[in-house]
């Protein structure tokens, strides 16, 4: 009996320690989430201006002139998968990998190359060496930088122009709200694919830019290539921001429910322990009383 209460007490203590940990992690994630959200907010005016510019230039130039607009049969495609470096964030990583795998399998007859961001994806595919991985990048999430995103986007641009790949797609967790993430697989190249997505957004926004005759410096064709390339870099940057914000949100929710589970468990075990203690006291009293009665 005494043994049992001691066992219970030990379990309660260990759960309490774990709860302390999960609570601390939740707070850290909340702070990081706020930072990530600030970064997303900061990017918004730039995104709006760049999109407006892009749509304007694209309308005014001959698409056949930019190699980034070339539409070929998609024989070789690239998928960039953005995951987290760390776990303990619910099904965040598992979901995105599952979606990426499903997407990969759906590309029948196409050669799919993967580029992995985040250690979790790297770990997953290390155990599956038959799948072609171009490159893995880890440790990006500590500080999401425009430079890093630009470098990555540029690599794919060059591959596309050189004909090494016919399409580039980007899979990432979009930050919808603190409790919800949405997995998005977005086309980056050929640009025509991305343009379709943009057009839809534009129609929703219903912002007619009007047909003002702009002066272009340099001429629209040259400018177009540059704007597109900036836009691609920005899209990658944006995906990284979304993904980090979503990661912190996911971790925060996961740690919150872990803390709640822990305190529920502590309550349950404490109740059980008290019952046991009560039971042992009761038995002792009965023993004393019946002993006294026997004597009397």
């Amino acid at each position: 009996m005494a043994n049992n209460t001691r066992e219970l007490r030990r379990r309660i203590r260990s759960i309490r320690n774990t709860a302390q940990l999960t609570r601390a992690m939740k707070m850290v994630s909340a702070a990081k989430l706020r930072r990530a959200q600030d970064a997303m907010m900061g990017a918004r005016p730039y995104a709006a201006a760049l999109k407006r510019t892009l749509v304007g230039v694209a309308r005014r130039s001959d698409p056949s002139l930019s190699p980034l607009l070339a539409q070929r049969e998609q024989k070789v495609v690239d998928l960039i998968v953005v995951t987290a470096d760390r776990g303990l964030c619910g099904s965040f990583n598992a979901n995105i990998i599952k979606r990426a795998e499903a997407w990969r399998e759906a590309q029948q007859g196409r050669e799919v190359h993967l580029t992995l961001l985040g250690r979790k994806a790297a770990d997953y595919y290390r155990r599956r060496p038959h799948i072609k991985v171009r490159e893995t990048i880890t440790g990006y999430a500590r500080e999401v930088s425009v430079q890093m995103a630009s470098a990555l986007a540029e690599k794919f641009e060059q591959r596309f122009i050189a004909g090494e790949t016919d399409g580039v797609y980007l899979a990432f967790n979009e930050f919808k709200s603190v409790i919800a993430q949405r997995i998005v697989i977005e086309p980056l190249l050929p640009f025509g694919e991305l343009e379709k997505v943009l057009d839809e957004q534009q129609r929703e926004g219903a912002e007619a830019t009007g047909h003002v005759d702009y002066i272009y410096e340099p001429e629209p064709q040259v400018l177009l290539a540059k704007v597109i390339s900036r836009f691609l870099a920005f899209e990658v940057y944006h995906a990284l921001l979304e993904s980090t914000a979503a990661e912190h949100a996911a971790r925060m929710t996961a740690m919150d429910s872990a803390s709640r589970n822990a305190s529920e468990l502590i309550d349950k075990l404490t109740l059980e322990m008290n019952r046991l203690r009560q039971a042992s006291i009761t038995t002792e009293i009965i023993e004393v009383v019946s002993g006294a009665q026997a004597l009397g």
Partner: peptide, 19 residues
């Protein structure tokens, strides 16, 4: 600092897009 040289803009400038 435009790609083709410095340029100044005053109110009422013609619409322009420059690198």
């Amino acid at each position: 600092p435009g790609a083709l040289g410095m340029f100044g803009v005053l109110p009422g400038h013609a619409p322009m897009l420059s690198e």
